[in-house]
Structure formats: C-alpha cells, structure tokens
Amino acid sequence: MTEDFLSSCTSGGCGAKIAASDLSSYLRALPHSQDPSLLVGFSSGDDAAVYQTAEDQAVVSTLDFFSPMVEDPYVFGTIAAANALSDVYAMGGKAIMALNVTCFPERLPKEMLGQILAGGAAKVQEAGAALAGGHSIYDHEPKYGLAVTGLVDPRKLIHNDTPETGDTLILTKALGVGIILAADRAKVGDAAATQAAIASMQRLNKYATDKFPAYQIHACTDITGFGLLAHGLEMAGTDHTLVLDTEELPILPKALDFANDYLVTAGGQRNREQIGDKVALSNVPFGLQEILFDPQTSGGLLISVATEDAADLLAAIQVDDPVARIVGLVTDREENPITLL
C-alpha cells in the first residue's frame, strides 16, 4: 500500500480534536435552544444530542470524523465508523442509520476512497444500522466519519455526568492507542502492539452496551480524544470524585514501554496542559501519566454502575470484551475530582 495515504496527513484519529476549552467561549455565545424536547444539546458536553419524539422514544444524533491514523484505507474506514457509532452507545441508544462524511484528495487513487467507504459500511452493517448516503468533498487530506442516528427510551437515557456515590467504575477497552500509533508512525513501533491497538479500535462498543438493560447503569462515556482523565473529569462533574486504581487499568501491550521512553503525542500534551492542574499526579510515574492523558481513538466505555451489579455486569461484558476491568469507584466530592491510587 502506498505511503501517500497516511504520510500526507498532519494529524489523525481523535488526537486531532480541538480542545474543549478552546471551543467553550464560542459555544457559550451561540443561541441555546429552549425546546423542552431537546433533552441533550451542546450546552451539557455529553456524548451525543438527544431529542424526544414520544413518551417512550427519543432520537440520538451524533457526528464524528477525522483523518487517518493507519496506513490501510479499509481499516481506517472501520475505525472511523466504530468511533462515530460509539457516541450512540454511550447514551444507551441503538444505532439505526448512518450517513457518510467524506473528504478526499484528488491526487490519491479513487480505489482508496472506495476502500474507506467499504470499511465504514462493514461496521455500520455490523451495528445493525442502515447506511443511507452521505456527503463528500475534495480536500488536501483524507477524512472520514459518520453522522449517526439512534433511538433510546428517554426514561433509560444514560448521561456522562450522573454517577452516584458508591458506584463502581468499569473500563471496557485498554488504553494506549495514541502512543502505540505514534510509535508505529515513527517507525519504532512493535507490529504485534500495533495490531492489538487496531483490533481494539475496530471493536464496537455495542457489545458492552447490549448488556446494560439488566443492570443499574448511572453514567457512561466513551474515552476518546481527551483521554481517560478529561473524560473522567466530565463524569465527576461538580459533586463527585472518581477514585481510579492505576494498577487495575487495562493497558495495551508496549504502550507503557513507549511512554516510559518519552514517545508521547501532541494530543496527549494538549490534554495535560488543559487538565493537569486538576489532578494530583505526584505519586504517578511519568509513563503512566502519559497513558492517562493519551488520546484514544475509538476507545472503550467508562461505566458508573451500582456496586451490587458491578461484578455481574463485568462478567457479562468480558464474554465479548475480555480486557474490561473494574478500575475504581465514585465518592462524594473530595479535594480533587479524580484521585489516583
């Protein structure tokens, strides 16, 4: 496969996200809808928008796209689609329809575009949703993603910032995707580690959320470009603290080795700059700090579940996602919104 597909891109995956703090002042200036049927809009920082259409039905709507982080166009399409679908799952919804969002350089072979779209279509089909069209433009760098529509019962809607004191925290995928991909792109990576990261990114979070209805899920978010700590801060909100056991965190093979060798990402450093002063890191080794800040593309779910349900939920999730782990608990607000053990 020609290297032009990846080498032409200045950034890729969720590590290319604009920092929330850089957008917040502009978002605050936008008019906020007063429609009571809009249950979740951009003012809340949740994973997707939600609009209620009936007493027992609401539409979940999300859009996600980015430039490549892997060399194979088909694999890129599968990862981008899995990442876009994830926001619907994080809200407790079911994906029903998707539209392609595509940017593609005129100089690259159109066969690559076909492979990207085929990869995305395969993941939409796996999700049980309908691929219904989309929009494409020429651009200097390839970019791809989906606008996804889902459905959820508003009485069972899951937010990202509503944990309850005493809850147990479950993380469903291993961390370290951004660091591993950076090593691969720098030609100092490990082939087996790269393949493990790719397999993780391609994995739909659908399989974890399929288990949700039988358990008391109080909050959920998917871990993407802002890393575990920033998404954890969103979950903690103003009333709670997340206590994370760093020894229990699932980490992809070689990711910690690369981080200890100071092979870090620009996205991870942006995350550190944005939130580093909100978390006490003095007792955490540098390499592990980088794992905590590392931007995750198509990362796992961080789930806040009633403690009495945690063991059973974890066992159910591990049938399909064996790396899932219990990683901490929720307490009343302490000095810091996140405590690292």
Rank of each mutant, 00 (worst) to 15 (best):
P105D: 05
P253I: 09
L329P: 01
L204A: 00
F65I: 07
A48G: 00
S304R: 01
P250T: 04
H231N: 08
A306P: 02
P109T: 08
E71W: 01
A316C: 04
G300Y: 01
S86C: 09
P295L: 03
A98H: 12
R107H: 11
Q57A: 13
D56E: 14
N100Y: 09
I326S: 02
M69R: 11
D245E: 14
A81R: 02
F42D: 11
S86M: 06
D46A: 11
A280S: 14
V243Y: 03
V50Y: 08
A324Y: 00
K123A: 02
G134Q: 00
V124I: 15
D261E: 14
K17V: 10
T224D: 06
G267N: 07
L30G: 00
S37W: 10
R325H: 00
Y144T: 08
V177N: 08
M91S: 15
L314C: 11
I198G: 10
T238Q: 11
S25Q: 11
A16G: 13
H140T: 12
A127M: 06
L38T: 12
I18G: 00
A118F: 06
G119S: 10
D245I: 05
Q274I: 09
I317P: 01
G114W: 02
D222K: 14
G134S: 04
G13V: 06
D35I: 12
K143E: 12
L229A: 06
I116R: 03
E141R: 10
L131W: 12
P109N: 11
Q296D: 06
F5Y: 12
N336R: 14
E106M: 08
Q125H: 13
S7W: 03
P253L: 04
G134P: 03
N83V: 12
L169I: 12
S7G: 03
T149G: 06
L281D: 07
K206L: 13
E141L: 05
G237A: 05
G178D: 00
S24Y: 00
A174M: 09
A311S: 15
A49L: 14
